[in-house]
Design a protein around this nucleic acid. Structure first.
Length: 568
RNA sequence: CGGGAUGUAGCGCAGACUGGUAGCGUACACCCUUGGGGUGGGUGUGGUCGCAGGUUCAAAUCCUGUCAUCCCGACCA
């Protein structure tokens, strides 16, 4: 590709809208342009990178036996009503209406559609298993889109769906995808980690997330320093590692705490540690209220609460509900004398003489003890795991790192096949629902996360596998015929060798060309200037290291190839 | 949805408090200059000041409403 025939509108200044590095660099490198909040144009360079990701995904999926198809982005409401998600999915589902007043949505995911396809055509175990996938544009009306392609509303996703006749088969399908995903992220040249995940509202029995490790990640990954356990914060198991103190029980008393609500404030006001306070949160679990207690310095984990109660929704109660449950205002809730059952995290169960809200305005109670002042309905794991916690598998210590969720695989079971009556006949001639799995990869997010993981102050440093061009040929004097003749020759050789070169034939100063080449992140640069040409050489510069070597012209292409291979 | 902020040329910003009909940098076009890290100089093009009302002789500026965007939080297959 010749730069002068292409379209890479690089920006010298960063548009004010960008916050994270991948967003800034994608805008500056002329890869994307925002059209609306969370909705982007993919400019030529951006599209090239997305295609690279797509192709890697496609190849690995095909190798794993999945079959590509394409489903519509617009879906009729009927299917969603069948699965029950039309009411359940919420505002994230962008609903639209056609001229006949029929309800549709812009697909955020395609479980319903694929289930409809499969139930129409597959009615025998003889046609199973099958795994169908697509690479499609999705739309999720996120509450707060941000970070460019990292959390857009419209984005590209590869989604695959497997259908099996029994549980054992479904596990094999899942395993195949697990392995395919590992190959995909390795092939993209990314550092990633697989973690156990909560299945969330998509339902199902087990699930793994594929996280690209980067400091700007929005998700926290818990992993053990001693064994191979890793999980996201929602899922990571916190063991009961607390020993109850032998301390003598003191008489309870109330303390006036004017304007003091948060744990931090209470701790400061009473001159105690947050660990001596127990937070009491009133939570709405489906349509009833319960109280959940966690230690002052811990965080309640809603996913764990949800799973404990086998509930479909869990949310913090409204102020009205809190008053109803406790008789006191929000911010001063405590476990003593309230109308709802009290569930405690393990850590709370080991506490003695602790501080809680008194269910009275501006009042806390100290030296409270369960068993004497109130009773737990039950004790379990209700909090987020933290760095330094004991690993439930091996007794090692948890570490916490940040990651970007780029892939998620679920074993769905029969959630959709049952609700949508997708059945086949088994060997005995009995009707059975398909056992399903679903497997997603955020294609556009992979591109963004590659930048988060690979950049420096001058711009992007593409992993070779994702680079839109693998090498850029930079003649410094395009008006000099001699220089251009050599540049063209090198360009052609690289091109013939399949190295997807870019020829910067613009009549620009050296600085401009160098800056742009670095910004858009081409792995190798071949510079041709008069001085080095006199020696019959070109300069070959590695983007990642900045290392430059003079190479005789005839050896140029080989040298580039060697460097590219070494970067893989 | 709660809190905070911003909307002025493609991009980055000033002007607003104190009303008088819009400016700087960059980008873009042309001329000269320079030619291995965004060269220097000059001449230009480009703006319904987000939108709609209102106050006023006069509104980018004051008032009301509205829309959009961003940040923090809540939420999130």
């Amino acid at each position: 590709m010749r730069y002068s025939n292409f379209f890479i509108p690089t920006l010298r200044e960063v548009p004010a809208e960008a916050e994270v590095i991948s967003h800034k660099l994608m805008l500056r490198a002329g890869m994307i342009k925002k059209l609306a909040s969370g909705v982007y144009n993919y400019l030529p360079l951006g599209l090239m990178v997305i295609r690279k990701v797509e192709n890697i995904v496609r190849q690995c999926m095909n190798e794993a036996g999945a079959i590509e198809m394409l489903m519509p982005s617009i879906q009729p409401s009927e299917l969603w009503k069948e699965s029950g998600r039309w009411d359940y999915y919420g505002k994230e589902l962008l609903r639209i209406r056609d001229r006949h007043d029929r309800d549709f949505c812009y697909g955020p995911t395609h479980e319903e559609v694929i289930t409809d396809v499969v139930r129409s055509y597959i009615s025998s175990y003889k046609n199973l298993p099958i795994n169908l996938y697509q690479i499609q544009t999705k739309f999720r009306d996120e509450v707060r889109p941000r970070f460019g392609l990292m959390r857009g509303r419209e984005f590209m996703m590869k989604d695959a769906y497997s259908f099996d006749m029994d549980d054992a088969g479904a596990n094999i399908s899942y395993e195949k995808m697990y392995k395919a995903y590992c190959r995909i992220f390795e092939s993209c040249g990314l550092k990633y980690k697989v973690v156990e995940a909560d299945t969330g509202s998509i339902g199902g029995s087990f699930s793994h997330e594929f996280m690209v490790l980067a400091d700007t990640g929005e998700d926290f990954v818990i992993s053990c320093g001693s064994c191979d356990y890793s999980a996201n914060v929602e899922k990571a198991i916190s063991v009961n590692e607390f020993v109850k103190s032998e301390e003598e029980l003191k008489p309870a008393e109330d303390v006036i705490t004017p304007g003091v609500k948060s744990v931090e404030d209470v701790a400061g006001f009473l001159k105690i540690k947050p660990e001596q306070i127990a937070k009491t949160m009133i939570v709405r679990v489906d349509d009833r209220l319960v109280a959940i207690m966690v230690r002052g310095d811990h965080e309640m984990n809603e996913a764990k609460v949800k799973n404990y109660f086998k509930a479909t929704t869990v949310e913090l109660a409204s102020y009205d509900s809190i008053e109803e449950a406790t008789g006191g205002p929000a911010g001063y809730s405590g476990p003593v004398g309230i109308k709802v059952p009290v569930y405690a995290d393990y850590a709370v169960a080991s506490m003695v003489n602790y501080c809680v809200g008194a269910n009275l305005k501006e009042t806390h109670s100290i030296n409270i003890n369960h068993g004497r002042d109130f009773d737990f309905a039950d004790v379990d794991d209700f909090r987020n795991a933290r760095e330094g916690d004991t690993c439930h598998k091996c007794g090692g210590k948890y570490m916490i790192t940040k990651g970007i969720e780029v892939g998620h695989i679920f074993k769905l079971g029969t959630k959709y096949s049952s609700s949508m009556n997708a059945m086949f006949l088994d060997k005995e001639g009995k009707r059975q629902p398909f056992i399903m799995g679903c497997y997603g990869i955020g294609v556009t997010r992979v591109a963004a996360s590659a930048i988060e993981q690979n950049h420096d102050e001058n711009g992007i440093i593409w992993p070779v596998q994702l680079a839109p061009f693998k090498a850029v040929v930079v003649p410094l004097a395009v008006k000099d015929e001699e220089v251009m003749r050599h540049a063209e020759a090198v360009y052609k050789r690289l091109s013939d060798m399949g190295m997807e070169p870019l020829l910067d034939d613009r009549d620009e100063r050296a600085g401009v060309k160098f800056t742009d080449a670095e910004l858009i992140g081409i792995p190798v640069r071949i510079t041709l200037g008069k001085k080095t040409l006199e020696k019959g050489c070109a300069e070959v510069t590695v983007r990642k290291t900045g290392e430059t070597t003079e190479v005789p012209l005839p050896d140029c292409a080989e040298a580039v190839k060697k460097i590219l291979d070494s970067l893989l």
